[in-house]
Write a protein that binds this DNA or RNA. Structure first.
Length: 130
DNA sequence: TAACTGACTCGGC
DNA sequence: AGCCGAGCCAGTT
């Protein structure tokens, strides 16, 4: 596990996110995702951008792919693409798991898209104000 | 070892 | 307004 990208997240560390001895991009992603408030959602790009690699939104998705086996648990269902679509639903135990989890948190879904995405949107680079 | 693959985005046409 | 290509980079083949 390279630390190349993780080094960029020094800001995250200094911003009082749970301290750890080793930092990797994946772990940084998990930390940020865990900070997403219940009932809110964020996007891959926003998280990538917050970590300083805004062009690597795909890596955030990659991280989510492995997030299911990470502890403490990562609320991967709160991360959708920039349009509010549940593009990652197929990576959950069942294709409907993601939607069910979000509904349980008070987020309405229609056609695999978050209703009122704009008002539910949670941007780490703003909310966490680096 | 090189090539391919994404739970993404953005810019250009 | 929608489609296409490029950039991103860790992990898999």
């Amino acid at each position: 596990m390279s630390r190349k990208v993780g080094d960029i997240s020094k800001r995250v560390r200094e911003n009082s996110i749970a301290p750890k001895k080793e930092y990797t991009f994946f772990e940084d992603v998990y930390e940020v995702v865990r900070l997403i408030p219940k009932g809110r959602v964020s996007s891959y790009g926003a998280i990538a951008s917050y970590l300083g690699t805004k062009l690597s939104a795909r890596m955030v998705g990659w991280a989510m792919n492995a997030a299911h086996q990470v502890h403490p648990k990562v609320p991967a269902q709160r991360v959708v693409n920039r349009n509010g679509m549940l593009t990652g639903k197929n990576h959950f135990s069942t294709p409907t798991t993601m939607e069910e989890l979000l509904k349980k948190e008070g987020i309405e879904i229609k056609n695999d898209t978050v209703i009122n995405f704009k008002t539910k949107y949670w941007d780490p680079s703003k909310e966490l104000a680096i």
